[in-house]
Design a binder for these strands. Structure first.
Length: 885
DNA sequence: CGATCCCGCCACATT
DNA sequence: AATGTGGCGGGATCG
């Protein structure tokens, strides 16, 4: 060991340490009296007493590390000093002796030398990376602390992180067992799996990887998610987890945070996670207001964790440049592939799922991570067998201590709610930020159209999402069929007469409060649609299904029993959603992947487990409903959904409101020629972030934006992402010149312009949800749509869509209704919505980068520079602008 | 000046 | 009550 230590130690810079001591003396004791702090003394002394004390002493003498120790107050002791003198590094000593303060100070160890990362390296150096199975290495915290010359507190920081990765396990008070990295791979694998469930979607969003998105979306999620944070704590309400009672400190524990942090990396395609995003995601509790202080604290903790992980060689610090500037981030440099390879990108079949069902059900899948298990060896913890057990302390003591319970609870809660919460929180934050800081542009935030302002985002807190309206065509796409005017009036949608959809001239965007749900009906003409798209009832249906986005709330509901979320109430109200959700629950962000959407609906549902992973899917589900299908409604009705939004609906709907039935329209309905007209926006709940809008058929008159002149704005589908989703942009209809006056309800403001920039994440290309099945086309260049342009001749389709579609070939039947299609527009033109931009700016504005909320002007300026910061998005924009739209 | 993050108070848990 | 843990955030340093 000595050797070992030495080697490790050697690297350190001993010199500085010494000085430190001196300095301290100086500062502390003018007189130099060796004041021996009580505590301090103890330790040092203790060392000697320990069996290995002598050894340690020797080592210390030899190695610089010891010096470090000395730094501590403890060090002051004369003895140590003597030791130091012994050490080769004497140079400084001399200096010290001389007593030049200055020198001392200079020498005084810099902060870096005392860094947690360095300390961790020293710590790790003491133990074999891959200990022989036979040998059991126990770690005494006190001993290590004294040896390394740090307070025990610091050791806890290190050990907690190591424990989260199962490199060590707590055996008893003050005693840990060193396992080394033998199990690291498995642990990481587990974390990856858990991470996929918990954060897959999120990360996807954040990272903007399109592929990822699809990929991830494709995965099914098992459960629904509860929701959200809206209500702050209700989440714990679940009986199962009596969490409420207990989650106390542990929830926040560094251990759990560490696991989650690692999960983010493992789930991330880029393997790069920025601190701020990680912090936001990890701040589960917070919902709406992620207060700054909390965020700061979280970041601090992440630094602590990151330092340890860095020492382990698992991550390294990097910087990512985003629109807003350079942000600190960490890149995973550890193993990525794990033998067992659990993660499948796409369809995770339930069976494949690593976690045993049992666990899920009971404790939830995430437990692992969650938590408390760390004390056990990783195996144990991960195995379903004992999912919840073991809290650390408990090990020795009773199994049922409250703590354990807590953890379990926590875990569940995590599963259930965390995702949603996180997303929501993140989104909200972003939004808030954006809103607050004009300068900052948040991708998500939308700008309200002048007229619309009401509806629009104004309220920061709520995330408002801009909605893009699709042109009629787009609608058609979605709907696939012409719609009859089922519900003619969808507030938002404007409809045109059957004949032609008129574009709304100005419609800009629609902004919805994140929380609300909306349905829009657009009147699309069948003709148009059909023309445009091949219509197939089936297609539609499919699409509808696919689309069926289940609002988070809905999801929650299902699982609600488990995870009760505030949003829960939703069930009642909307049958449709529910139903769909039920059916399609699987579909994750449905948008993306068609594949499974339908199939395994249930998977998520298991009541018990419901909460777990479902989140993503549900969150994103979109429902299509066609007004026409009452039947469906009925069915749906059986399952009432309550939406908070209902209210909104009512408001919104009023004009024409599609009856719920319409909304509900399910696939079946889809068959009908009509398209659902509604938009579903879901908001709130945990996910608050995602909102979807679909337009279904709309009766021409129904929605008409009468007020606005926008004739037909149908909104095909709109997806509104919540913050999380921010990345997805939505579709847009052609630009409308005139801003719409708010639509009747106001729920929509019907802004004319369609674009909106959803891109939450800058990089991510906007997604379109289109009718097409999965289309992820990248349309190259579509010129962005001009929001402002007066009517686009293109009326029906928003340019974007059209193009995109075209590119994609939306035409194909697939496009029509099918499953949800998300189109990611890469270059799309989604325009950012800043209000201003909308108006004036034409091309320029087009897509704003997320950050671009700033005022348009700034934006423009940027354009010039685009290259500079230019997030990809911006660039795209430019390109698009050039394009002939 | 923002990014880092050391340091140690002090609340809570365990013994 | 003593001791072990570890959340937390002030504020020092670094870059």
């Amino acid at each position: 060991e000595n050797i070992f230590d030495r080697s490790r130690m050697a690297p350190k810079t001993p010199i500085k340490n010494e000085p430190v001591d001196l300095s301290k003396q100086k500062g502390c004791t003018p007189e130099r009296n060796p004041v021996t702090p009580v505590k301090l003394i103890d330790r040092p002394q203790s060392d000697p007493w320990t069996p290995t004390a002598n050894l340690k002493i020797l080592i210390s003498a030899a190695s610089p590390d010891m010096r470090d120790r000395e730094k501590k107050k403890e060090l002051f002791r004369p003895i140590e000093n003597s030791e130091q003198s012994d050490t080769p590094d004497s140079l400084q000593y001399d200096m010290v002796d001389d007593s030049t303060i200055d020198e001392f100070e200079k020498q005084r160890p810099s902060r870096k030398q005392k860094s947690l990362g360095l300390l961790c390296q020293k710590f790790l150096a003491r133990y074999p990376t891959y200990p022989l199975s036979t040998e059991k290495t126990t770690i005494s915290l006190d001993e290590v602390a004294s040896i390394l010359g740090v307070e025990r507190r610091r050791i806890y920081d290190i050990v907690n992180v190591l424990e989260s990765l199962h490199l060590v396990s707590r055996v008893a008070k003050n005693q840990y067992c060193w396992h080394g990295r033998h199990n690291l791979s498995q642990t990481l694998k587990m974390l990856q799996e858990a991470g996929e469930q918990q954060y897959g979607e999120l990360m996807t969003f954040f990272q903007h990887k399109e592929q990822d998105l699809e990929y991830k979306f494709g995965e099914r999620k098992k459960e629904t998610i509860p929701d959200t944070q809206d209500r702050p704590s209700p989440d714990f309400s679940e009986p199962d987890c009596t969490s409420a009672s207990a989650n106390s400190r542990k929830d926040k524990s560094l251990r759990i945070m560490s696991q989650k942090f690692v999960m983010l990396f493992l789930v991330s395609k880029t393997k790069i996670v920025t601190l701020d995003i990680a912090a936001k995601i990890l701040i589960e509790e917070t919902q709406d207001t992620v207060d700054h202080s909390k965020f700061k604290t979280k970041v601090r903790r992440l630094y602590d964790i990151a330092n340890v992980l860095t020492s382990l060689g698992l991550i390294k610090k990097v910087h990512v440049t985003e629109e807003r500037g350079r942000k600190p981030a960490f890149k995973w440099i550890g193993p990525v592939e794990f033998p067992g390879k659990t993660d499948e990108p796409r369809g995770h079949s339930p069976t494949s799922d690593p976690l045993p069902q049992a666990q899920r059900g009971a404790c939830a899948p995430y437990q692992i991570c969650a938590t408390g298990n760390q004390r056990f060896t990783r195996h144990a913890s991960f195995n379903g067998a004992q999912p919840c057990e073991g809290t650390r302390r408990k090990v020795s003591s009773e199994p049922n201590s409250p703590r354990q319970e807590r953890q379990a609870c926590i875990v569940n809660s995590d599963k259930c709610c965390s995702k949603m919460i996180n997303l929501a929180a993140v989104c909200r934050q972003k939004i808030e930020e954006d809103t607050r800081n004009p300068s900052v542009t948040s991708p998500l935030s939308l700008l309200p159209v002048p007229g619309d302002s009401d509806f629009c985002v104004n309220p920061l807190p709520q995330a408002v999402f801009p909605v893009v309206q699709a042109d009629v065509p787009s609608l058609s796409v979605l709907n696939g069929v012409s719609s009859q005017a089922l519900h003619p009036s969808t507030p938002a949608a404007s409809k045109t007469e059957n004949g032609k959809p008129t574009l709304l001239p100005n419609q800009p965007f629609l902004c919805f409060p994140s929380s609300s749900l909306f349905m829009l009906c657009g009147g699309l003409q069948e003709n148009n649609l059909r023309e445009t798209l091949p219509t197939t009832g089936e297609v539609q249906n499919r699409s509808a299904e696919a689309l069926a986005a289940v609002p988070p709330a809905a999801c929650q509901k299902r699982s609600s029993h488990e995870c009760t979320s505030p949003s829960a109430p939703v069930d009642d109200e909307e049958p449709a959603a529910k139903k769909q959700t039920m059916e399609q629950s699987d579909v994750p962000l449905s948008l993306v992947v068609p594949k499974k959407t339908f199939e395994s609906p249930n998977a998520g549902f298991t009541p018990g487990s419901g909460c777990t992973s479902a989140v993503h899917l549900e969150a994103f589900h979109l429902d299509l409903t066609s007004p026409a299908a009452p039947e469906a409604a009925d069915k749906e009705s059986t399952k009432p959904l309550d939406f908070q939004e209902q209210e909104k609906w009512s408001q919104i709907k009023d004009p024409d409101e599609p009856s719920p039935g319409k909304e509900h329209i399910s696939k079946e309905n889809a068959n009908q020629p009509f398209l659902p007209q509604y938009l579903y926006v879901q908001p709130t709940a945990g996910l608050s972030s995602f909102n979807f809008l679909f337009s279904a058929n709309q009766a021409p008159g129904a929605i008409g934006l009468a007020a606005s002149q926008l004739p037909s704005l149908s909104i095909p589908c709109v997806v509104v992402p919540s913050a999380a989703l921010a990345s997805f942009p939505v579709v847009c209809s052609p630009a409308v010149t005139s801003p719409l006056s708010p639509v009747s309800d106001g729920s929509f403001s019907a802004a004319a312009s369609m674009n909106f920039s959803m891109s939450g994440l800058a990089s991510t290309p906007p997604v379109f949800i289109g009718t097409t099945a999965v289309v992820t086309p990248k349309v190259p260049p579509t010129p962005s749509v001009d929001p402002q342009q007066p009517a686009h001749p293109t009326l029906h389709l928003s340019p974007v869509l059209a193009r995109s579609c075209g590119a994609v070939k939306l035409d194909s039947p697939v496009c029509m209704g099918h499953p949800v299609t998300l189109l990611k527009l890469q270059q799309p033109s989604s325009t950012p919505l800043t209000p201003k931009s909308i108006r004036p700016a034409r091309h320029e504005a087009f897509f704003k980068t997320p950050g671009s909320l700033e005022d348009p002007v700034a934006w423009k300026k940027n354009e010039g520079n685009q290259t500079r910061n230019a997030s990809s998005v911006q660039r795209r924009l430019e390109i698009s602008s050039t394009s002939p739209d």
